[in-house]
């Protein structure tokens, strides 16, 4: 038992360190003293399934924001002829997108459905507090837990399940994004906002092997992924499911990487990111071809789609794109602008 505690402790200490770092660094926009926390009124958060993002918030003073996520374990298709038992926040992978505003008091309920086999909890990286909420949300099947946290720091954050074995819970799809809008200088308006999340999956059978595939612990430990996916399914965002926009429109991608293992070399073929909010934080970079998204991290990308056509979103660790499913599409419709791009080959 002592050793159990010790083992847990080591991880616990690390978790504490991470939390400490997070609070120490917020001198500019996130410091408690600079933000308004006078909370008036209660709103229910709009929660969306990927690739949809909740509408930008219209209120301008802190609210008590009610959020309820349901943990649902269910068999879904991971590929056309392949099924997998996903553990989800809200019934799909990734989990529901949560959008709140800096200074809000988030009143959070986690419900574990009675049909679940296992207990689950949630660690939201947007939380300042022990375990990101995980210490107070470990819920048995059929039960729920509730806690509140002040959204102190703006930015795009991952949430995930942290019940042991953590890797397995994440590998089965237990992650999603929460965006904390800053109190000052909100993101500029764009024409479209989309929600993407990368995740790696480990199955007994190979990529697209038919039937219900089980989670493979050994492959997960060896980090040998069979699938690297956007939004939890091969072709979740290609062909008829492509993200559709019009020529000349601006697009914002809220991208997270649930992992559990792989770091994403996130790239859109044929586009340059006009703006990247590096790691989902305050640092803004421009004119980026490929941006790294760590496992357990996120990024906000703005780009303008000047030229019509199909644009492939990939993990540019490129075998993942062509052999493991890490590919999504944006279809841009409209008139070509030869001033930007034109095929010169004669017919």
């Amino acid at each position: 038992m002592k050793k159990t505690i010790l083992t847990l402790l080591l991880a616990g200490t690390m978790a504490t360190m991470f939390t400490a770092c997070r609070t120490n660094t917020d001198t500019s926009s996130g410091a408690m003293s600079n933000i308004d926390t006078t909370t008036t009124g209660t709103v229910n958060a709009e929660l969306t399934d990927a690739p949809n993002v909740p509408k930008p918030l219209t209120y301008t003073s802190p609210k008590r924001v009610m959020v309820t996520l349901e943990v649902i374990e269910k068999v879904m298709r991971i590929a056309d002829s392949t099924e997998y038992t996903f553990w989800t926040f809200g019934g799909s992978v990734p989990g529901k997108f949560i959008r709140v505003r800096q200074g809000d008091m988030v009143d959070f309920t986690l419900k574990n459905m009675p049909d679940s086999k296992l207990p689950h909890n949630i660690d939201l990286h947007a939380v300042t507090g022990p375990g990101g909420g995980a210490t107070v949300t470990n819920v048995a099947p059929g039960y729920d837990a509730r806690f509140q946290f002040r959204a102190l720091n703006p930015g795009l954050y991952i949430y995930h399940c942290a019940t042991g074995p953590v890797g397995m819970h994440i590998a089965n799809g237990m992650y999603g994004l929460i965006y904390v809008e800053p109190q000052h200088n909100p993101l500029p308006k764009v024409d479209h906002e989309f929600y993407l999340m990368q995740g790696d999956f480990y199955t007994k059978g190979k990529f697209e092997a038919k039937g219900l595939q089980e989670f493979d612990m050994d492959k997960a430990i060896d980090e040998k992924a069979d699938y690297v996916l956007f939004n939890g399914r091969v072709n979740a965002l290609t062909g008829p499911n492509s993200l559709k926009v019009k020529q000349g429109e601006t697009v914002r991608l809220f991208v997270g990487n649930g992992g559990p293992n792989l770091v994403s070399s996130f790239h859109v073929i044929g586009e340059i990111f006009n703006t990247v909010r590096v790691e989902g934080g305050d640092l803004v970079n421009h004119n980026v071809q490929t941006t790294l998204i760590p496992a357990g991290g996120a990024t906000v990308i703005d780009m303008k789609m000047e030229v019509p056509g199909h644009y492939h979103i990939v993990d540019h660790s490129i075998f993942r794109a062509f052999n493991k499913g890490a590919i999504a599409q944006i279809k841009v419709e409209g008139k070509n602008d030869p001033n930007v791009f034109m095929n010169l080959k004669k017919k």
Partner: peptide, 18 residues
């Protein structure tokens, strides 16, 4: 002895077992 978070433990346990 779990506080719900499989990665963490409380300060007093740290003192107790370090």
């Amino acid at each position: 002895i779990s506080k719900g978070d499989s990665r963490a433990t409380t300060e007093d346990e740290k003192k107790l077992f370090c």
